[in-house]
Design a binder for these strands. Structure first.
Lengths: 142, 142
DNA sequence: GTCAGATCTTGAATCATTCCAGAAAAGGAG
DNA sequence: CTCCTTTTCTGGAATGATTCAAGATCTGAC
C-alpha cells in the first residue's frame, strides 16, 4: 500500500479517543473499499480478536460523524463504508452484482452540481450514483 | 388534481392484471408523493378495506418493475415510491427531517450525466441526490 | 495515581422486508 | 355464461440489518 496512514493520529485529530477497536475498524475500512458492516466486523476480528458487532456499529457511526470515513448506501444495498473522504467523488453501481467502483468528480468540491430548482432547500452536497452493468456481468450475460 | 389518471388503463398497458389492490396502490402513490411503504399501506386500507401488507409489497415491486412507479431510497431511509416516471428527475433530501422534493433534470433523459471514468461499466442512469436542509428546518434552527 | 466520562460487552428488541403454502380472483377459451 | 389455468392475495412466520439498554472497562486529563 501507499504510506500507511497513521490511524492513531487521525483519531486524535478528530478529537476521538484512541482505542483498539477504532484503530482496527479504520484499518479495515482502508483495506476493504466499499465493504459492508459484516465484512468490516470480520476483518476487525481477524486482526484484533473478539470485538462485539455493537462496537463496530458504534465506531463506524463515530468515524462517519467525524468525517474520517464515508458511508454510502445505494438503493437495495446494506450500508457500506469507504476511506476516501473530502474529494466528493461519486460511484458507479452494478445493477446485477452490486459491485461498486469510484468515479472521480470533475469538480471535486461539494456541491459539484447545482439544482435547477432548489425548492428553498439549502444544498450542501450533490451525490451522484451511476447505475449500470459491470464488466464481469456484461461479459457473462451480453 | 389534474385529469385523474386511468389506473386501469395504465395497468393493462403494462401487461399487468387489474385488481383492486393494484388500483388502490397506484392511486395511493399518485396521491402521496414520496410516501414510504407504511403510508401506502395505510392509504390503501383507508380506501379499500383490508389488504395484506404482503400484497402491497408485491404490487409495489410489480409496478416498479413495469415502470409505472419509481422507487427511491436515500441513505438511512426506508423505501419510498413516487409516480413521476420517465422524466429522469432528481431529488433533494433534508438531512434533518428527511423531507424530499423533486428537482427537474436539466437534460431530462437518462443518463443525464456521463462519468469521467466509467471503469468499464455500461452506464444507463445517473441518479442525483442533493443533500441539504429544507426551508422548515432552516428556519427552525438557523 | 485517581477520577469522570466516554466506550465496549452482552443480550435482547425493533422494524422493514421477504419467504412460504394455501385460498381467491382475473382473464381467456369454449 | 362457465370452466380452467395462472397469477395474485392472505395470513403467519422468518430473516437480517440495525438499534436499545445496563453494567463493566478503558482513555485521557488533573
Amino acid at each position: 500500500m501507499t504510506t500507511a496512514p497513521d490511524y492513531e493520529q487521525m483519531l486524535r485529530g478528530a478529537d476521538l479517543r484512541v482505542t483498539r477497536p477504532r484503530v482496527a475498524v479504520l484499518n479495515a475500512v482502508h483495506a476493504l473499499p466499499h465493504a459492508d458492516t459484516d465484512a468490516i466486523i470480520g476483518a476487525v476480528r481477524t486482526e484484533e480478536g473478539d470485538v462485539s458487532h455493537q462496537a463496530v456499529y458504534d465506531v463506524l457511526r463515530a468515524l462517519t460523524a467525524a468525517g474520517l470515513v464515508r458511508r454510502i448506501q445505494p438503493s437495495g444495498s446494506v450500508a457500506r463504508y469507504e476511506s476516501r473522504v473530502g474529494d466528493n467523488h461519486h460511484h458507479v453501481v452494478c445493477r446485477s452484482c452490486g459491485a461498486i467502483a469510484d468515479v472521480d468528480c470533475a469538480i471535486g468540491e461539494a456541491p459539484c452540481l447545482s439544482a435547477s430548482d432548489d425548492n428553498g432547500f439549502v444544498i450542501d452536497e450533490a451525490e451522484v450514483i451511476y447505475w449500470g452493468t459491470c464488466p464481469d456481468c456484461s461479459t457473462a450475460r451480453p
